[in-house]
Design a binder for these strands. Sequence first.
RNA 1: GGCCCGUUCGUCUAGUUGGUUAGGACGCCAGGUUUUCAUCCUGGAAAUCAGGGGUUCGACUCCCCUACGGGCUACCA
Length: 509
Amino acid sequence: MISETVRVRFAPSPTGPLHLGGVRTALYNYLFARKYHGTFILRIEDTDQQRFVRSAEEYIIESLGWCGIHFDEGVVSGGPFAPYRQSDRSMIYKEIIGRLLETGHAYYAFDSVGELEEIRNRYQVAGAEQFQYNYKTRQEMKNSLTLSQQEVADRISTGNPYVIRIRIPENEVIVFNDLIRGKVSVHTSNLDDKVLFKSDGLPTYHLANVVDDHLMKITHVIRGEEWLPSAPLHLLLYRFFDWEKTMPQFAHLPLILKPDGKGKLSKRDGDRLGFPVFPLQWTDPVSGEVSHGYREDGYLPEAFINMLALLGWNPGTEKELFSMNELIDAFSIERVGKHGSKFDPEKAKWFNHQYLSHKTDDELMEILKSQLSRHLITASDEYVLRVIGLTKDRANLIGDLWDNSWFFFQSPQAYDERSRAKNWQSPSGEIIRNFAADVSEMKDFTKDTLHEVASHFVTLHNIKMGQLMNPLRLLIVGSNQGPGMMEIAEVLGKKEFLQRIEVGLSILG
RNA sequence: GGCCCGUUCGUCUAGUUGGUUAGGACGCCAGGUUUUCAUCCUGGAAAUCAGGGGUUCGACUCCCCUACGGGCUACCA
């Protein structure tokens, strides 16, 4: 089925940070391209100068790079179809739209934004159906269909702002085959005469997208479901330009929905429910507002990608852990689901836990060391490695490495109130004091010998192991967390161990 | 409102020539391991396959209707 050389593109609009859904769209395009040994292109669709955000393009590139999604052609590396930024291609669109004007498939329209708004209002007040600039209404509007040729020429030459609209044919059914949904059909009477060229001299998405996909020899358009309703318009454009023979195939991806409630996932949901919606942290250049990112929140890119890949696609097997190469191998557009998926932040955490626990101790050591340096702590590799061995199973996020092990590197600054209330009883002080005395006699300070001493101690004093261990942990760690008490003690060493007890006793009694 | 798309455990999903005890995963619950908290292991609850009609010996699988959900309906993408 896929015989020709595959060329696909990811074509984001630099209006802000790329969110989860955008990353997934990029990912599916990337997997598809790699799977068929095709070319993957990054095109920047910056035809909206109102919403343009300067730092967005850089953010998008950095995000996808972090994810391991790399481009063969595009704004970064260039390529045979440069330029890849639509604002740098405006001459191309300007020239090409002339063909549609000549063939009568497009026309000039002089109705101002204000006039249009007024008409929409009038329709609404009258309780009529929503106003559409279409075959029914275009005869009553100010455009090159209703105005004399002379007046049109005059208006243009005197600088009267205008747009160029497509002239949607009447009474026709547009049918196309979507790779994910199968046959989709729309009657042209439901389509409106969309603006192709704005009065600012730049094309709209619809025109630029079709022109560039054709010029860049795109074979498959894999994009979000929000484009499905306008796909028939795009098809018409291919026909009017006489590009139908090389028209790409379409695949419309279902959307990613909010975890709770209804609607598509938005930035607000992340803030509200406490999970990142963006791959990287984003600082809004205007408001200065900072949004969380998966990278900064401690997710591994492999985990993030794996999670995203399975949100809307599945391999048909029970395997769920996939490296990028495995994804490329297993991916197929036919196995992308048709319906939207609610995003589950808990599952994202689970994926991260999986990837973290599959890392080697050496890899984790490097990560923890970088966290240590941030806390101005230095420790030998050997020591960090021992700590990793004891704490790595407990981490979900990268930050947990430090959160679960900081007490190996510094003594507790405070004693957790709840642990204290639960584990520090009146006899605790005396128990610990006596135990510390026994420990100070020890020559061989290992977890095994400590256990022996502890067992002996609890038998002798006729107490339960917990009565010794729990308060001990409180003094050593500061709360009721962490790996086995004696394992911690062994790593800490006798001197540090006894010192923490001494300090703790002086505070808690 | 109109148009388009969709609908299997709470969530992500398997189920592709119609015949399955409707499978897995996350989460949840219980038990085990443990000196704590996690991890880990074992087990469990959890879908009348949105509802109703057909077609058929037989439908989650095919058709129709309804309901519900989502998207679009800008000189935004």
